[in-house]
Design a binder for these strands. Structure first.
Lengths: 194, 194
DNA sequence: ACTTTTTCATAATGACCGTTATTAAACCGC
DNA sequence: GCGGTTTAATAACGGTCATTATGAAAAAGT
């Protein structure tokens, strides 16, 4: 019993996700969040708890809604296809929305005051988890013969992630899709072959 | 005439530079800055003006004191030496101080509230200027025959910057020097030869 | 020694931060 | 319709933000 919720929690989550994407965790104030969600402050608190929990929900949604190309890419037959698929999907994601460029994770992982440290740690872990998935995929490729014996799966994964992070920074700095594609091509130019 | 300044402005600038490096522009509060500088608030205001101007002074100092390897690298004979020198000096800079890892520019360029937009724009411009210097150097190399005719100086410069930015993110996430060196090696393996 | 000028430390300013009491409104079972 | 319960909106909370007014302390000119 009791009164029904008058706003769509999923819609509100989509809205606050975009705010966090654009401004980062600390840069997003409740004034921004309530305006974007079209909902007053206490409603956000009752739906999500505090700001940190709300960011966690937004991060989960980011992964399942915008980073869904990652698990799909890992299933491609060759590591070159894996890397290519990830790079080009990341470029698209980083430049698709003019008002929130770059990557939600990278935009929030770098700077900020001490009180944002727990959130930063969550983002660091998320970044590391993605890299670990890549490394495991490349280790498998090495066992399957898709990568040469001299290849270092950990270094390849770290390199690919570095290029992705760098492109996220460049996208935030206003890079065009074409320029990012040139960066991706250069990164792929000497991908180790069997 | 008048009373003398009792603190060393240069020392104070070094101190606030480290705070900005670690926490970014918005993440650094005056409480942090005064504590690090060992100087009360009005002294910082009289010496540097407001927070934005103080950050600008810190950024200038960062370039002349920590990024001095960049102009030196541009004078090396081959583009491969240029890229190698920059990558390894960046790794050293990004991991040298455990309490402020990564890069001051990249740590401040990404997210933040709207009122930090002017500072963000300054950092974006600084990033673009460094990339332009690289591009011009690579164009020269192409004319000199150090790079093949098929090489794209703009793409090479953007790629090198992307790897640098990515390594700055990874350093902030706790990467070891050895892992970053593996990333740099992988990046250099794609470098075009004459 | 005294006035002038600059720097110093203390403490206050208004604005905004994330978070909640508080109260009115809307729904349920009865 | 009516009590019980949940949500909604208004407005307030203490704390911190960047910035500065205030007045004491210190140095230079006369």
């Amino acid at each position: 019993m009791g009164r029904h919720r008058e706003f769509d929690v999923e819609k509100a989550l989509d809205a606050v996700l975009c705010v966090f994407w654009r401004k980062g965790y600390e840069g997003a104030s409740y004034a921004d969040l309530t305006e974007a969600a079209g909902v007053e402050r206490p409603a956000l608190y009752s739906a999500f708890g505090n700001k940190e929990a709300m960011f966690g929900r937004a991060l989960d949604r980011y992964y399942e809604r915008y980073l869904d190309y990652l698990p799909k890419a890992l299933q491609l037959p060759t590591t070159r296809e894996v890397a290519t698929h990830i790079l080009y999907n990341a470029i698209d994601l980083n430049t698709r929305y003019a008002d929130h460029t770059g990557c939600l994770v990278i935009n929030g992982v770098l700077a900020g005051s001490d009180e944002a440290e727990p959130v930063r740690q969550v983002l660091i872990d998320a970044r590391a988890a993605a890299e670990a998935q890549l490394r495991e995929r490349f280790e498998r490729a090495k066992a399957e013969g898709d990568l040469p014996e001299t290849a270092r799966p950990d270094a390849l994964a770290a390199f690919l992630m570095a290029v992705l992070h760098g492109m996220a920074v460049q996208a935030k700095a206003g890079f065009s899709r074409e320029m990012l594609e040139a960066v991706a091509e250069q990164a792929l130019s000497t991908w180790p072959a069997r």
